[in-house]
């Protein structure tokens, strides 16, 4: 129960951050990616400040043996760079550049009620579901069940 309320609160703060920083706007994100056009560097400051705050917080948090409400920290342990990581990032980069939406803003932006947002999220969920099967088709080892990130 407490953990679910924490998740709700964390989601709320995250959604507020995406809205205030205007990262919910595909055109704002595309203006960042469009270095050769009318470039808008805002996304660097959004990601940068988010990384700085969480970097400091994570260091302090990891001094504890376990999280406050759970038994262990759920952290990815892999450190190897493989084709799947890079290939996935390439495919995501194309999708991100085409529309200007990544998963967080796509979901939180549903509240604006654009039909495009709902269609995008529907298509994204299909992609999330078939991703592991596509990897199997090209003969690579299967994707681990729930992936962090």
């Amino acid at each position: 129960m407490a953990r679910n309320l924490v998740a709700l609160a964390a989601g709320l703060i995250f959604g507020l951050g995406l809205a205030i920083s205007e990262m919910v706007s595909p055109l704002k994100v595309k203006a960042f990616l469009d270095v050769a056009g009318d470039w808008d560097p805002s996304l660097i400051l959004v990601m940068g400040s988010a990384v700085v705050v969480s970097f400091v917080a994570f260091r302090l948090i990891l001094r504890r043996p376990q999280p406050v409400l759970d038994l262990k920290f759920d952290i990815p342990t892999r450190r190897d760079i493989d084709g799947r990581l890079v290939g996935g990032a390439v495919v995501f980069g194309v999708g991100w550049g085409l529309v200007g939406l990544c998963p967080g803003p796509a979901l939180s932006g549903l509240v604006y009620g654009n039909v495009e947002s709902f269609v995008f999220v529907g298509a994204m969920l299909v992609g999330l579901a078939i991703g592991p099967r596509l990897v199997t088709l090209v003969g690579a080892p299967p994707v681990a069940s729930a992936t962090p990130g």
């Binding site: 290939g87 996935g88 999708g95 991703g131």
Partner: peptide
Amino acid sequence: VVAFDVGWPVIVGGGVLTGIGTRIGAGCT
């Protein structure tokens, strides 16, 4: 603040690619 400058095929294609890519690459932004 949410507006799009692409048509439906790109919305659908971009959505599918975003889903596949973040799942295979184990993460997003």
